[in-house]
Amino acid sequence: MNWPRQLFSRRLYRDLPEEIQAHLDEKVEELITEGMSREEAMQSARREFGNLGLIEENRREVWIWPSVENFLLDFRHGLRALRHNPVFTTVALLTIAIGIAANAVVFTVVNSVLLRPLNYPKADELLTLHQIAPGAEGLADFENGLLLSPSMCFTYAEHNRTFQSLGVWIAGTANVTGLWADLDPDREEFLRYPARSRLGYCLRLPIPFAKFFGEIRVEGYRISMQSRLFKSRMN
């Protein structure tokens, strides 16, 4: 049975108490005709009719999903219980809130460190190289590796036989005001690649930088910005 019809049928369900009452009235009248008093007739009619509560429940189950109705009843009962016990409700809500927040924090860390792929093509093939120089104390530490000079970078890139390409990145910030004076004057994060970086990728930078420039292509020490916004400004 489709929904519109079922909604219409609910009217049939709601009419039933009136129908049952008519049934009982007719039965009472018949029993009175047979010689019973009205009181006896009413008792007898109710007895022969059966358990009204059970019948009511049975007929309701025909039209209504009992599980849904039971769930709603339980839900309302739960809300009432919570309203009558504010201390318990507050403690329970705080516990749940702290639990959710802790979960969110842990997930954020796990997602950014372990799950979310880096923003490069074939990010799973990307490796980080550290150069270490045992014995060169003061120049290197084993956690951060030896600092890299441009000449070392070129040397590694030219002698590289193991990797498809080799790149170096430097994190920093840049001021993006000036030509685009209407842009947010905040300094934006950027990544700068030195010459001969053969990553050859168009880096898609995260918001908010990317929303202005779309993508950045690394060409030597220059960073060329390609976007409709940039082109429209330069034209």
């Binding site: 369900y13 039933l16 049952i20 007929r59 025909v62």
Partner: peptide
């Protein structure tokens, strides 16, 4: 008699 009505429903 009452069992008639759930059946009718």
């Amino acid at each position: 008699e009452g069992s008639l009505y759930p059946a009718l429903q």
